[in-house]
Design a protein around this nucleic acid. Structure first.
Lengths: 363, 363
DNA sequence: TTGAAAGCGTTACCAA
DNA sequence: TTGGTAACGCTTTCAA
C-alpha cells in the first residue's frame, strides 16, 4: 500500500518522500553540482561548461524535473498572462470566437512559452475588478483585453495600475508604453462590402449597428457609409443590440416607405433576426431584401437562405495577439519559424463570403 | 520623472520603492506587530486579540495589501483549479456553452474563493499533456475535465498523476478518492422526448448520434430507445458527426423507403444540417418530418422553422462543478447562502422546449 | 497573545 | 567555471 506520509518526516528532510516532485536540489545532488549551476544550466545561461550542462540536463530529465511555477514567480515575477472574457451568456457566436482567439494566441506563444489563462466575467466592470485583483496579487505579468470599448473600465484600471496589456481594438488617446494594440482591418472589409452592394444595384442600405460601446461597429459603419456614398448609395443606421431590440428596430424599417433593399448587421445572430422579421412581413430574401452578416460564424450556414457574411479571421487575430504578448512579456525568443511579428498589428480581413442572402434589389 | 530603480537599491532594502506593492512585512511594521501576527489576523486564525486583529486588518486595507499568489502557493501549495477546454474550432455551440459552464462554476466558487483558470487545447491528448505539465509544475491544485469521453487520455493522465479532479460526465470504472463527478440527467430528458414523439404519433424515429467517443450520446440514445420501445415505436441510430458526415448520413435515410418521420440529433448544428437536407429533398418540416435538437442553443432560434430542443442547463451544471471543486480543494467554506451542494451530483434537465420543428407525422 | 525564525523552490550575486 | 548564500512573500512551528 502506497500510503502518503504527508507531515513532518522526522528522518532526512530532503530524501525521497513518496510523492515528492523533484526540485533543483535533487537535481544538483544527483548531478554532483550546486544548485546555482543547475539553475544556470537549466535556463541556458552562459557560465557552465558544456559537459556539466549536458549532465545536468540529462539528470533533470531523468528525474522528471519541472520548474515549480510558484517558486519561479516568487523570485522573478509572474510569467503568465491573463485574459478575462466578458460573457453574459447571450453572445453565442462571439463567445465561441473568443475561444478561437485564444487558440490562435496559444499557437503564437508556443508550447514552451508563457501561458495564457482565460477567465470569464459577466460584465466589463467585473472583468476590470478581476484584473485589478490579480495584478495586485502578482498573478499575471500582463493582460489581454479583448473587444475594447470606447469607455472601457478595463483599460482605465490597467492604466491606473500601470500594467502591461495587449488591447484588441484601437482605442482613442495615447497608450502607455507597456501596451500593444492589435486590431482587425474590418474598415477595409466593410468598404468592399459597400462596393459589392452598390455594384449589385442597391441604393438604399441600412446598417443595424450593434452596441454603441463597442468600437468596431462605429468603424464599420463609417467605412460602409463612405463606400456607399462614393457610389451614390445611401446608408441609414439603426441601433438595435440584442435579438428583441433588433427585431423591434427592423420591423418599422421594413414596413415603412422607401424601405432599404439591403440590410447589414454587425453579427450573425442579428442577421438571423432580420431574416425572421423579413419572413414574417412576407419579404423574400434575397429577392425582396438582401441581408449581410457583419461577422461570419457557423450559424451563418444554418439559416435559410444561408447568410452572406464578412469574414472574421479570429484565429489570425489570435496569432497577432500572441505575438504582441510575447513582445510585452519581455521580447524573448518568439516561436521560431514564424516571422517575428510586430508588436502592434492590424490583421487583414478577407473578401466577403457570398452565400444565398444577397441579390440585386427588386426592380 | 518616475523612473523605476529596479536593481539593488543600496539604501534601506525594504523602504518605499516606487511601484512596490505592500507585503506583510510592511503591514506588520505599520501595525507595530510581527509578521506572524499579521498572517494569523489576515487569515482569520485564532490566537490574535480582537483589537490587534482589527488594527492589522485596517492597516492592510489602507495599504492595499493583497496576498502574493506565488508566495502563498510556494508555502501552501497551489489554490487554483485548471480547466482545459478541447476546442477544434468546429464545435461552435458547444464552445459557447463551455463558457457558460465556467460562469456557473465561478459563481459557485465565489469571488473570494479559489480561481478557476481556463485554457484551450485542440485535442484531448493535448489537453492531457497540458494538465500533466501544469500538475508537475504545481500550477494547479485540481483540474476540471469537461465532456469526459469513454477512453479519455485526460482521465488516464490525471489518474496516473493522482491529481484531484472534477469530471463532468460519468465514466466507467472506479474513480480515485480525490475525484468528484458531476453529470447531466439527460437520460431522463431523452426518455421524456421519446414519450413526446410517441404521443404525437411517430412510430419511426431516427437518432443522428454524435461522436461515439463522447459518453452522453450513448446514454441519450439508450434512454430514447427505451421510451420509444415502450410505446411501440422504433428507433434507428445513424452515426454522423460533423456537418458533412451528418448530411451524408441523413440523405439516404430520408430518401429510402420507410423513412423516419422524426429525427433527433445530438446538437444544434447537426439539426440544422438535417433541416437543410430535408429542404433539398422537398420535405417540409415539420409536416413531413419532425426534427429535434438534442442540445438547445441560441442557434435553435435562427433556423426555419425554429428547432424544438432538449434544454441544456449548462449554467446549473457549472454551479455543480463549482460545488464539487470546493469539495475537492479542501472542503473549506463554501459560498454561504447556497445550500452546501454534495460533491458528486446529477443536474436535472428540464422539459423539452417545443418550437416549430415538431408536429404529428404525415398521415 | 506575541515574536523570532525556519522553510517552500528558484534565481542571482559574490567569492573562490 | 563553480559553490555558497541571500533574497522573493508567506505560513507555521516553537518559545517567550
Amino acid at each position: 500500500m502506497v500510503s502518503s506520509s504527508r507531515p513532518n518526516d522526522p528522518v532526512h528532510p530532503h530524501t525521497t518522500r513518496p510523492d515528492r516532485r523533484p526540485t533543483i536540489v535533487d537535481v544538483a545532488r544527483a548531478a554532483g553540482v550546486s544548485t546555482a549551476v543547475v539553475s544556470y544550466a537549466l535556463n541556458g545561461r552562459p557560465g557552465v561548461s558544456a559537459s556539466t550542462r549536458e549532465r545536468v540536463l540529462r539528470v533533470a530529465d531523468e528525474l522528471g524535473w519541472r520548474p515549480a511555477t510558484a517558486a519561479r514567480s516568487l523570485r522573478s515575477g509572474p510569467a503568465a498572462a491573463g485574459l478575462v472574457l466578458v460573457h453574459d451568456g447571450r453572445n453565442g457566436a462571439r463567445a465561441a470566437s473568443a475561444l478561437d482567439l485564444v487558440v490562435g494566441a496559444q499557437e503564437a506563444l508556443g508550447v514552451d512559452g508563457p501561458t495564457l489563462a482565460v477567465h470569464v466575467a459577466p460584465t466589463v466592470a467585473g472583468a476590470a475588478t478581476l484584473m485589478e485583483t490579480w495584478w495586485t496579487e502578482r498573478r499575471y505579468a500582463a493582460f489581454v483585453v479583448p473587444h475594447a470599448r470606447s469607455d472601457d473600465a478595463r483599460l482605465a484600471a490597467l492604466r491606473r495600475l500601470n500594467a502591461p496589456a495587449v488591447v484588441v481594438g484601437e482605442v482613442p488617446g495615447v497608450s502607455p508604453p507597456g501596451w500593444r494594440h492589435v486590431s482587425l482591418d474590418d474598415a477595409a472589409a466593410f468598404a468592399r462590402l459597400g462596393s459589392f452592394l452598390a455594384d449589385l444595384g442597391h441604393t438604399r442600405v441600412a446598417m443595424l449597428a450593434g452596441s454603441e460601446e463597442l468600437l468596431a461597429p462605429r468603424r464599420r459603419t463609417a467605412a460602409l457609409r463612405a463606400a456607399l456614398g462614393e457610389r451614390g448609395a445611401s446608408l441609414r443606421t439603426v441601433a438595435g443590440e440584442g435579438a428583441d431590440k433588433a427585431a423591434a428596430a427592423v420591423r418599422p424599417l421594413l414596413s415603412g416607405p422607401d424601405r432599404p433593399t439591403a440590410i447589414v448587421t454587425d453579427d450573425d445572430a442579428t442577421a438571423g433576426v432580420v431574416l425572421d422579421v423579413a419572413r414574417r412581413l412576407g419579404l423574400s430574401v434575397p429577392w425582396d431584401l438582401s441581408v449581410v452578416a457583419g461577422t461570419d460564424a457557423a450559424a451563418c450556414h444554418l439559416t435559410t437562405p444561408s447568410l452572406t457574411a464578412v469574414p472574421f479571421p479570429v484565429r489570425e487575430l489570435g496569432l497577432a495577439v500572441g505575438a504582441a504578448l510575447l513582445d510585452v512579456l519581455g521580447g524573448d525568443t518568439p516561436a521560431r519559424g514564424a516571422p517575428t511579428a510586430p508588436g502592434n498589428g492590424t490583421v487583414a480581413v478577407g473578401n466577403l463570403v457570398v452565400r444565398g442572402s444577397t441579390a440585386p434589389p427588386p426592380s
